[in-house]
């Protein structure tokens, strides 16, 4: 009995309808939180005592970096679910994650470089955080490349799922090896994210944007999953009914 909700999540028509219903409930709070958080971060938060106004980049960099890792984790979990239980919807979720994650990884890379530029004096420094983001971007691009190179959609789903699972096992290894490599050469990163001493006026806008980005990801995911489900359910009868209604 308790498992019926779980089984329903494997059913494409149910998930398709659920996604359509939930999207506005996620999208509007996301818009409010991001707009409010960025306004508070740009205007209300006091300047940092060391980095001045330049620290305000944290309100776009940290949430983007958070997205890049969270989306990869969600993608790998969905891919593993699809591989083990052969659930089509799970593969649709994994496929929907990749472009979102790749684009926010790119944003994290660019904003990180812009944040570091005034402190380092150059736009690129082999900072461990930035290097990890760069490798993560390559992992996303490999995933997208593999998916687009395989014509048969089911094989593309399963092959890219294996890659996503292999990737998620490697992400912590890559991250710690990069940190280890970097610790030999220079002091820690200028990007002190999650520093406990951050005053509430600085921290609250950051938390708002983080929550907003997470909700935004969920909303984007639901829209994309509907598209991916339609592509995987060619000729299913429920598709005709669903499209006849709207």
């Amino acid at each position: 009995m308790a498992w019926t909700w779980f089984h329903r999540l494997g059913s494409p028509p149910y998930v398709y309808a659920l996604c359509a219903r939930l999207t506005p409930w996620l999208a509007w709070p996301a818009a409010l939180l991001i707009a409010g958080g960025l306004y508070a971060g740009l205007v209300l938060a006091p300047p940092d005592y060391q980095q001045g106004e330049g620290f305000r980049i944290i309100y776009v960099h940290a949430p983007s970096a958070w997205m890049s890792l969270m989306v990869y984790t969600v993608m790998a979990l969905a891919a593993a679910t699809g591989l083990v239980w052969r659930i089509k919807v799970a593969h649709a979720v994994a496929a929907a994650c990749a472009p979102i994650g790749a684009s926010f990884t790119f944003a994290a890379l660019v904003t990180g470089s812009l944040w570091g530029a005034p402190m380092w004096g150059t736009f690129w420094e082999w900072d461990p955080r930035l290097t990890s983001e760069l490798v993560l971007l390559l992992l996303y691009l490999g995933y997208l490349g593999l998916r687009s190179a395989i014509d048969d959609p089911q094989r593309a789903d399963r092959a890219s799922a294996v890659l996503a699972v292999v990737g998620v096992v490697n992400v912590p290894i890559i991250h710690y090896s990069v940190v280890w490599w970097n610790s030999l050469h220079q002091a820690a990163s200028v990007m002190r994210i999650g520093k406990p001493a951050m005053p509430p006026a600085m921290l609250l806008p950051l938390l708002a944007v983080l929550a907003g980005f997470t909700l935004l990801f969920a909303a984007l995911l639901l829209v994309r999953v509907r598209g991916e489900i339609l592509e995987r359910e060619r000729g299913a009868r429920w598709v005709a009914q669903e499209l006849a209604q709207s």
């Binding site: 992992l139 490999g142 593999l146 190179a149 094989r155 092959a159 890659l163 490697n170 890559i174 490599w181």
Partner: peptide, 25 residues
């Protein structure tokens, strides 16, 4: 992974190199 893939020889480095980074380091 790239067995059944057209242009597999271009894709292979993109898949393998990021994972090989710790070995290189």
């Amino acid at each position: 992974l790239t067995l059944g893939v057209r242009r597999g020889s271009l894709l292979l480095p993109l898949l393998v190199l990021p994972l090989s980074l710790p070995v290189l380091i």
